[in-house]
Amino acid sequence: MRIILPDKSVRTVSRASATIEEILIELGINPTTVIVVKNGTIVPEDVTADEGDEIRILRFSHGG
């Protein structure tokens, strides 16, 4: 699957189906601090991602 990280760098990962939460934790990212867009749609982190999916991780860290 193709993962677009918060700094917009792209990582291609070859792995079996996993939940988005598992993927985030493997990347060292706390799921409460990001929003995940899977194939163009926002999804909850307990949704699974599979080979061929695009996962975009948006971090919101600054005030407002």
Binding site: T32, T33, V34, I35, I42, L58, F60
Partner: peptide, 10 residues
């Protein structure tokens, strides 16, 4: 939460 607000805006 901050996450809900960003989701709302997106």
């Amino acid at each position: 939460s901050e996450k809900e607000i960003v989701t709302y805006l997106l």
